[in-house]
Design a protein around this nucleic acid. Structure first.
Lengths: 142, 142
DNA sequence: TTAATTACTTGCAAAACGCAAGTGTAAAAT
DNA sequence: ATTTTACACTTGCGTTTTGCAAGTAATTAA
């Protein structure tokens, strides 16, 4: 797989060159919510990603240092994906997207405990979830 | 053009259903930076969007209430696009994307006065740019 | 030893993308 | 008044990406 081509030197544009599609950030979302996931876990999310797209996106995200794949303990066929620090740093953007969606999109689950906590104290929530994921990350350096 | 279909009730997923592609948020970016743009202005941005894609994305963003198209003063052929309040509310997410890109993507222009000001005081910058765009918005109600 | 799980890969039709060229209307130039 | 230019799209068409279904190879569980 060749490196992601950048259309310009705009940081927004270059970010979108990596994960500007309907799926990549949902993978990051799942890793934010669950800390680590197997390939199969991702296929079980409610948006029902096709397995070929999933395989491609995991590869692109890994190539770009956003996620890290590690072997699953005591299992030679499973893999475990988690966010790298670079991936954890995407969480503020993700949270802003969630807040926007919660505010403007009717079917978005307004009463989710997740969004509720974010709205109560965004800074605190961000720190907690990011620190937590980074700690998890440290613990998994082999 | 039919309404945007949502894959789930997740606010992140639903947001991506609308603008989860490589172009839509660049249109929002241009409207954030320049307040208003004509069709031709968008084609001149450095990422060189194809005109058929541009026409489609402008339509989708307008259908979803994120941008507003108004006639250009004293010109019957030009149109002027600007952000609606709903579109202005996307700016925090856009800024987070810009910060992430600035931090992690080599070619992203680190020394841009824009990113520099954001990093100096994010809250203040956000308030200023959003208030500014909303004021502009008020003034253009016909 | 057989069946089930897991993580993909492959085939194929449909949709989206990207480039180039074309169109219609209005504005500007001559 | 007539031609030229500008603007905002639209169309055609080849390429790429997507999405669905089925298949595969390597474990692991029964």
């Amino acid at each position: 797989m060749k490196a992601t081509e950048m259309r310009s030197d705009c940081p927004i544009s270059s970010s979108l060159d990596i994960f500007g599609d309907r799926w990549s950030l949902l993978i990051v979302r799942d890793l934010m919510l669950y800390k680590s996931r197997t390939y199969g876990d991702f296929t079980k999310s409610s948006e029902k990603i096709a397995t070929n797209i999933l395989a491609n996106r995991l590869q692109v995200l890994e190539n770009n240092g956003i996620i890290i794949k590690a072997p699953y303990p005591d299992n030679k066929v499973k893999g475990l994906y988690r966010l790298s620090p670079k991936g954890v740093d995407l969480i503020p953007a993700l949270i802003e997207l969630a807040l926007w969606g919660g505010k403007y999109l009717a079917d978005s689950d307004e009463s989710s405990p997740f969004l509720k906590e974010v709205k109560k104290n965004k800074t605190k929530f961000l720190k907690k979830i990011m620190d937590d994921l980074l700690a998890n990350d440290e613990a998994n350096i082999d």
